[in-house]
Design a protein around this nucleic acid. Structure first.
Lengths: 149, 149
DNA sequence: GTTGAAAACCCCCCGAC
DNA sequence: GTCGGGGGGTTTTCAAC
């Protein structure tokens, strides 16, 4: 994997801020022609540097007002931990990070209510044979900000 | 805030999976005309349910291979905690969540190296007058998955 | 709220530099 | 790697149902 040059970084930054920006506008911002920008974006996509595009959502309005971070640890530490595979089909789990520290994984989950969280935690424990530690998010001042590149 | 109906939820789900999907394709998926889909998307944007669109990036390829969760707590708990405002101009901070529990906020940060993380933590402590606790991410099996709606 | 059509715009490919 | 052009598709608006 070779480096990503300055102009590509600018394109990436612009697309992180507005994933639907047109190639025409990207060209105006970067000083390149539409074709040149288009080709660069396609190469960024092919190289996997841009993995895709997504809508940024208001989860509260969508009926999932409760976010939490769930740290998990196997009940039986002698067994291999396949939690990511075991939990991948639980749609309430938005993200799964393997982490250093006392616990193996940190999950970010979104649910409709405290009771839905309770039920989800039971499901996670049962499926992956883990203990859970949960930190409830009260509010989110900011999220999904553009990268420092 | 009124409810979001079924067809709107489907549109949101599709745009979460592919933020650049055309209105034509959205119409084919939902069984609506292009115009009807377009109008619904615009209303979802105006209502703030769709806050925007963003590119999903490979941070490793972009030179930010190290992700961490940084929990922060004021040195002086008697003072009001304005950490989000104090830290908002630090671009390495991708997200800031106010949380229940022993600490006040959880930050998600992306940096180039361990030494860059060390320097960032010093900057966070100095700017917000907080103590920090850091959990380093080793790998991310999945992230930014489509919501369970 | 949905439809269908029309016009402007953009995407996308191609050849040339 | 970048530029410019052209055909085809898409976005966007609008009147009508």
């Amino acid at each position: 994997m070779t480096g990503v040059e300055q102009i590509d970084r600018q394109i990436v930054r612009l697309l992180a801020r507005n994933g639907r920006m047109s190639y025409t506008d990207l060209g105006k911002e970067t000083g390149l022609s539409t074709s040149a920008v288009h080709q660069r974006v396609r190469r960024l996509e092919q190289r996997g540097i841009i993995k895709g595009y997504t809508a940024v959502l208001d989860y509260e309005a969508l009926g999932l007002p409760l976010t939490a971070f769930v740290s998990i640890k196997p009940i039986d530490p002698s067994q291999p931990d396949d939690s990511p595979e075991l939990l991948v089909d639980i749609p309430e789990i938005e993200a799964c990070h393997s982490v250093a520290g006392d616990e193996n994984y940190i999950l970010k989950v979104r649910v409709a209510s405290p009771s839905a969280l309770e039920e989800l935690l039971a499901r996670i424990r049962a499926k992956a044979n883990v203990s859970t530690r949960t930190i409830v998010v009260l509010s989110t001042p900011y999220e999904q900000r553009a990268p420092a590149i």
